[in-house]
């Protein structure tokens, strides 16, 4: 039985990825997010348009920041927010992902926010529920709200996104953040460069993703507007992806010297959590004139509010 799609103010039932979103839809999401940024800075942060709605944060992979951000977003909109993590789920007891989806669906949630370690798992789950599903990260595939919050951060600092040049640096191979960002920047007309050792780049990245590929940081960062650093997972630092932390930092860690190749006002971004001294020099990460890493965290809540707003049916009489 295919679930009936519910009516929505947005042309999509789910937000499974940046793929499939038009430039106008991205702009719409960012415009709505801007409004929530102001709300979140006010003393009274509640705008209970989702009162009576149920939001389940279903995390099959540990997360602190993303889950908290979605939880805050839902609560500020008045939804009842439930957190389910893998430790308390039935998955450990052998239930399949589809069983979990159907079980939760039977409880009539209005939105499921799902993170899963396998690429494509969130899509699979979404096929078996009636409610809206927001992908909070699936494997190495997509993490759309991260890309949206990155875009919002850049737009608020630098204006229109088109014609900017963005360098995404580090562990592209394993990064869903990179894939969502590449899709978003390509859609809005910004140029993307990937900078990483070949062991951390997906095969045929240039043709598959519509980007240019660089192995050398100085070359890759030359005259870029945005430097986006990615986290290198500790378990990948010693082995065959990268020989060591010190070698990685020496050649690919962002420091003032390498950053000098970028435009003078280039912004530094990082999806967090950072490995200081591995992919980014600590002082640069804390340089408030260049680093917008904390802006990203702040704007993340607003972006998630905008997503919930667009995908969930509003409470009767609620005003936007």
């Amino acid at each position: 039985m295919q679930p009936e799609p519910l009516p929505s103010a947005f042309a999509h039932q789910h937000l499974l990825g940046i793929e499939g979103l038009s430039g106008d839809e991205i702009a719409q999401l960012l415009d709505i997010s801007d409004g929530y940024v102001e709300l979140n800075r006010a003393a009274e942060k509640k705008n209970p348009i989702l009162r009576g709605r149920t939001q389940i944060n279903l995390f099959f992979e540990t997360s602190t920041r993303t889950r908290t951000s979605f939880e805050l977003a839902g609560k500020r909109l008045g939804a009842d927010v439930i957190n389910m993590s893998v430790a308390t789920s039935a998955i450990k007891k052998g239930e399949t992902l589809i069983d979990t989806a159907m079980t939760l669906n039977a409880m009539h949630p209005d939105v499921l926010v799902v993170r899963h370690p396998e690429s494509g798992a969130v899509k699979l789950l979404s096929d078996h529920v009636n409610c809206a599903v927001i992908n909070a990260g699936d494997g190495s595939h997509e993490h759309p709200t991260q890309a949206l919050l990155d875009a919002l951060t850049i737009r608020r600092r630098r204006g229109p996104l088109e014609n900017l040049t963005v360098a995404i640096c580090g562990d592209i191979l394993h990064s869903r953040v990179a894939r969502s960002n590449i899709l978003l920047f390509n859609t809005v007309g910004a140029a993307v460069r990937l900078v990483a050792p070949p062991t951390l780049l997906p095969p045929r990245a240039a043709e598959a993703l519509g980007v240019t590929v660089h192995h050398d940081m100085r070359e890759g960062l030359r005259d870029v507007d945005i430097v986006m650093m990615l986290r290198l997972q500790t378990e990948r630092m010693q082995g065959t992806f990268v020989p060591s932390t010190r070698e990685y930092f020496h050649f690919w860690g962002l420091d003032a010297e390498k950053l000098s190749a970028a435009k003078d006002d280039a912004l530094i971004m990082h999806p967090g959590p950072m490995n200081r001294g591995v992919e980014i020099d600590s002082e640069l990460a804390d340089d408030i004139t260049r680093s917008v890493i904390l802006d990203q965290v702040e704007l993340g809540v607003a972006v998630r509010q905008a997503c919930l707003d667009l995908l969930c049916p509003r409470a009767p009489g609620a005003s936007g």
Binding site: Q238, T240, P243, R246, E247, H250
Partner: peptide
Amino acid sequence: GKQITEMGL
């Protein structure tokens, strides 16, 4: 034969 060395350094 397991972990690559710091070839760049």
